[in-house]
Amino acid sequence: MNEELPLTDVTDEKKRELIESGDLLEHDAPFQPGETPIPDYQLAWAVTGDEDGNPDHGEPFEDGAEKEVVISVEEPGPNDALLYMLTSEVNYNDAWAITPCVDLRATRP
């Protein structure tokens, strides 16, 4: 594994370097099991926070609560499965994290 990168401290230039070195796959890059090497890092979307656990964003809909981040890919163990997903979702936990004052259950019929 290469140098440890902070979760949110990745510039576009650093992403390009990681992609060019083969340590990070581009969005929608093909992945062939057994042929494509497992990269050291992956792109992800996350609601990030400070050291105390407080969200590090302002108003969610203005500042964009979710951020694209680069995270390490762990080497799978003997009883692990490594998934390559090209999907994203927004669930109750995501909605709660970016708008903690909204009770989504109150909107159900």
Rank of each mutant, 00 (worst) to 15 (best):
E75V: 09
D94E: 04
D23W: 01
D23V: 01
K67Y: 02
S88V: 00
C101M: 13
T107G: 14
E75P: 00
N79H: 11
Q42C: 11
D63V: 04
P78L: 13
H57S: 02
F61Y: 13
Q32A: 14
W45E: 05
L86P: 01
H27N: 02
T87K: 05
Y41S: 01
R16Q: 15
D9H: 13
E62I: 15
L104H: 12
A81S: 08
N54Y: 07
L24V: 02
L82Q: 00
T87R: 07
A46G: 02
L18D: 04
R108H: 11
L43G: 00
S21C: 06
G22N: 04
V47H: 02
S21W: 03
A29I: 07
P30D: 14
A46M: 11
G64V: 09
H57D: 09
Y84Q: 03
R16E: 15
F31R: 03
T87A: 06
T8L: 03
Y84G: 01
N54I: 00
E13H: 09
L83P: 00
W96P: 00
V47G: 05
M85W: 08
E3S: 09
T11F: 08
D28W: 10
E51R: 07
G53D: 02
W96V: 15
D94Q: 02
R16Y: 09
Q32F: 11
D103M: 10
T11Q: 13
F31M: 09
E35N: 08
M1V: 02
K14V: 12
V10H: 05
E66L: 06
V69A: 09
P76Y: 09
D40W: 03
E20H: 03
P78A: 14
T8W: 01
L86M: 11
L86N: 06
P76A: 07
I38Q: 09
L43N: 01
T11R: 14
V10G: 04
D52S: 14
G58R: 04
I38D: 01
D103Q: 13
D50P: 05
P6A: 02
T36H: 07
E35A: 15
N54F: 12
P37S: 10
L7E: 08
T48R: 09
C101L: 13
E89N: 06
D56W: 13
K14L: 14
S21L: 09
N79P: 00
L25Q: 03
D56G: 06
T87M: 10
P78W: 04
Y41G: 01
E35Y: 10
S21R: 13
P30N: 12
E51D: 11
I98V: 11
H57V: 02
V10K: 06
D12C: 07
R16K: 14
W96D: 09
D50I: 09
E20N: 10
Y41F: 15
G77A: 11
V73P: 00
P78E: 15
N93V: 06
N79E: 15
P33I: 12
N79G: 06
R16H: 12
E59F: 07
D23H: 13
M85G: 01
E68N: 02
G58A: 05
T11S: 15
